[in-house]
Simulated scan of single mutants.
Amino acid sequence: MPENPGAPFPPQHTPHQPRKKKGFSFKVQMILLAASLVVAIGGFAVIITLNNIAGPEKQAKTLSEGDCVVLTGSGEEADAVPTGCDSPQAPYTVGLIGVDKGEWSCDNRFYKYAVPTPLRGEGVGLCLAINAQVGLCFDDVATKTPPPLKDCGSARLKISEVFPRTSVEESLCADDSVEVISYVGNETSKFKSATICFVTP
């Protein structure tokens, strides 16, 4: 028999259980996921909108020295499109390519041409040479800007001969030549030396 039958039981101490951290409810998680998707879609839409405003990428950005080109558009729509050098519609060759930034100029007998790239960074600066192809016709090749191709029936100048080297003197061209352009090529690019002889069509 216990000595103190009426004595109370000693107090029982229950170990303290740490409170579990409540995570986000399923409903809250879905709201956060939806908000993230809205932000992502919104950012993507902004990128697409800016690209649409900027217009298509200019082909001038793909050019290399020595490529032949056709010029298209004007102002902010101007571009230089690569074309086969044997094409009768390709009047120019890229002599030098750089960035259209600040003041810049081209050497004598090269033609300055700028291709702006609005909202896409700095534009493209080109120094263009006459494409050394017999049969092309122009009115005036002594300009600072690219002279347009002309119909040979009404043009003042026609390429009659082309020599794949530079000529300090005009002795390479025939006596009936009325204009001579000579370019010094770049050994590190596709732009090659050439002497171009013009006659009256």
Rank of each mutant, 00 (worst) to 15 (best):
V81F: 05
S160C: 09
P147Q: 14
R120N: 09
K112E: 09
K61P: 02
K112M: 03
L172R: 09
E76Q: 13
W104Q: 11
P164W: 06
C68H: 07
E77I: 11
P148D: 06
F110W: 07
V69T: 08
T83I: 15
V69K: 04
V115K: 01
Y113F: 10
K58F: 03
I159G: 05
W104T: 08
R120I: 02
T143N: 03
L119T: 04
S160T: 12
C152K: 12
L71I: 14
P118Y: 00
F110H: 11
T62G: 02
D107S: 15
E77Q: 14
G66I: 08
N131W: 12
E77C: 06
S160Q: 11
T145G: 13
A78C: 02
E76P: 04
K58W: 00
F163V: 03
A60F: 01
V70H: 13
P91C: 15
G125W: 00
G98C: 06
V141F: 09
D79K: 05
P147E: 14
S171T: 14
R120P: 01
P148E: 08
C127Y: 08
F138N: 07
V162I: 11
C106Y: 02
V99T: 13
P148C: 08
Q59K: 13
K144A: 10
S87M: 04
L149R: 00
D107C: 06
K61N: 09
G125I: 00
G66R: 02
D139T: 10
G153H: 13
C152W: 09
S64F: 08
D100M: 07
A132H: 15
A114Q: 15
Y111W: 07
R120T: 03
